[in-house]
Every structure is written in C-alpha cells, then in structure tokens.
Amino acid sequence: MRRLEKDESLCVGCHQCEFACAEAYYKTFDPAYACIRVEDGWENGEYRSSIHICNQCGKCAEVCNTCVIQPNPKGVYMIRKKECVGCLMCVGFCPEQVMVQSDDRLEPSKCTACGICTKVCPTGAIRIVED
C-alpha cells in the first residue's frame, strides 16, 4: 500500500508543499488548489502546526453514487474523471477537507500520493510510505 504520512512536530509552516501541489496540478500558487493543507500559528506563546493530508481512507469512494472513485492496486483512491458527474459530494464529505474543487473544471481532484509535496518539504515532515 502507498500513501502519504506526516509528522506534525517537524513542520515549520513554510507551506511549500501546498504551493508545489497547486502549481503541479492547477498551475497556480494558491493553496486552495492543493490536496494538502497546513494550518499553523502561535497559540498562547507556542507555535503549532497541523498538516491535513489524504490518508486514502476511502470516504470519498463511499459517498460517491456514481462509483467512479476506486483504489488502484496500491490502495490509492483514484477518480475516473471521464465518468465523474461533478456532484462534489466527495469534496464535501472528505474528513480532512483536502480534495480540490475548481470552477474551471468539471471534476474535483484528490491526492494520488504522487510525492511532489514531499520533495519540497525542508524538514521531512511529510513522506511517502509503501508497505
């Protein structure tokens, strides 16, 4: 099985992972178009960062009544875009809210564990795991 994993304690909140993902798939540096989300900030004097990633839980596939989200042999859930009806239920129900919806596309997109984000992470807070 192949998926992204995280260690929030290593995250320094540089957001490079979000820019890399959004740029790779949507040609923009707007983090709203990334399939990874980092929320960081100072809380009562302490720096805290939470990383939201797709751990291939399959909730998107469960709510899809078109059945176009299926796991590939490595357990990575993929959307069959050609037959996706664009209903956005997967985007709405994703527990980590890391699917991307864009008005200039007819289908949403999800993390496919491609690893682009891990390559730009300066601290190794995120990495691809294959077991």
């Binding site: 996706c84 664009g86 956005l88």
Partner: peptide
Amino acid sequence: KANLNDVYDFGLINKTGL
C-alpha cells in the same frame, strides 16, 4: 457531466452545493 444544463453561473452552483 457537471454542467449539462449549461448554467449561467457555474461557480455559484458549485459553492452553494458544496
């Protein structure tokens, strides 16, 4: 597909639906 109705404001529909 998502927009067979060829709607006037696709963004507003997506936002409201989501």
